[in-house]
Nucleic acid binder design. Sequence first.
DNA 1: CCTTATATTTAACGGTCGTTCAATTTAATT
DNA 2: AATTAAATTGAACGACCGTTAAATATAAGG
Lengths: 215, 215
Amino acid sequence: MMTQTTDRPRLRAPSKRSLATKTRILDSAERLFAARGFDGASIRDIAKDARVQGALVAHHGGSKEELFYKVVARRAEELAALRIAALNAALAQGTPSLRDVLRSFVQPLFDKVQGGDAAWAAYGRLIAFVSADERWRDLARDCFDPTARVFIATIGGMIPKARPEAVAARFVFMVSASLSIITSTWRVQTLSQEGATYDLVEDLLNFATAGFEAL
Amino acid sequence: MMTQTTDRPRLRAPSKRSLATKTRILDSAERLFAARGFDGASIRDIAKDARVQGALVAHHGGSKEELFYKVVARRAEELAALRIAALNAALAQGTPSLRDVLRSFVQPLFDKVQGGDAAWAAYGRLIAFVSADERWRDLARDCFDPTARVFIATIGGMIPKARPEAVAARFVFMVSASLSIITSTWRVQTLSQEGATYDLVEDLLNFATAGFEAL
DNA sequence: CCTTATATTTAACGGTCGTTCAATTTAATT
DNA sequence: AATTAAATTGAACGACCGTTAAATATAAGG
């Protein structure tokens, strides 16, 4: 269901225009999937948003499910690289604090999301969808689990007496809480009436660090 | 969009059969909305599941959006009552610990969800949808915010030096993490390879209590 | 420049969608 | 038992869905 039945080898390099079109399609799909969910976004709307005929979306993206896979996978590698790089930077200068390790995981995404890049903001919402819906189990395993395992192992190594399952559980708690900053800012704002803007990411790190240190 | 343009007064009491049919429709809608999301579940599938004609779903539920509202609102009052009762029970016997207060919020839902009641398990997933999607902002405000405000105020009173926004933010973090137990058990299991079953709710309370106490 | 693989368009297929409306059946009220 | 409001059915509406096939335009490779 993911790959074509026959993987004919490419005989010609794709043109610049073709690559640009494919990027435009993936960008539109990313935005609309993030805004309306997988079922709420239609291929036709994505095509219109990308100023392209519907059949071309199928040509570049395959089936709707394959298109979703491609959209999620596209930025996953970059995100994973940023997180691993941040972790290695923290590990490079002596023994980092637990908070530094957690920040290495959380900060790269929010740097992108809050950096004014609308595409990354949409991508953050996509991660939330993938993490919450068992329908995307394989996608989550392929795109996000490898990095998660590295961090869980690192954290576990810093808290030797903690049970591995407990570390994994709390890691999922932290990920879920961090994604709530993306999906539920409106709820936070509603529940804390008024209030100057204030750094939810720093607060999450305080919250999660204390939660892990209690192990 | 929510109520009929003319609310004619009822001239006759609904029959037992009619009430049973309406319940069956709401049950089917609850199950299918929870399993496939708002856009993924169709009125036709809901009607078939309830062994009823499609037009009858509209008769009892109104538009699809109104039906979703009714499904979510149906159990919201009972859940709110259970939570407030648990909080009052904790407050009644002296000064409760922060953990007891958090448990008063978290435990009632999981008692229902893990108590073998499939309908409540579905309802738990619905809460996760409502909490994560700004589309249901009004619904969340009507059904869940009043209870949340009570708990936030109570927690804030126990941590006088904490900024109100910080308490609200951490409360949302905790809610999001608790819902991840419902929506993402599969991820926890994947990330903590193998492993005997183990009490995620207790672990969440440990995690969240430490997170709040760090304020 | 020619050939032709690839990109793109155009048009349509078979389904499913939410919703509506006019019968028809059920049962609460008098 | 008669009246008729309310529940339920059956059928259809127009719109949109994902996908596909064939025709045409573009441009890479020789």
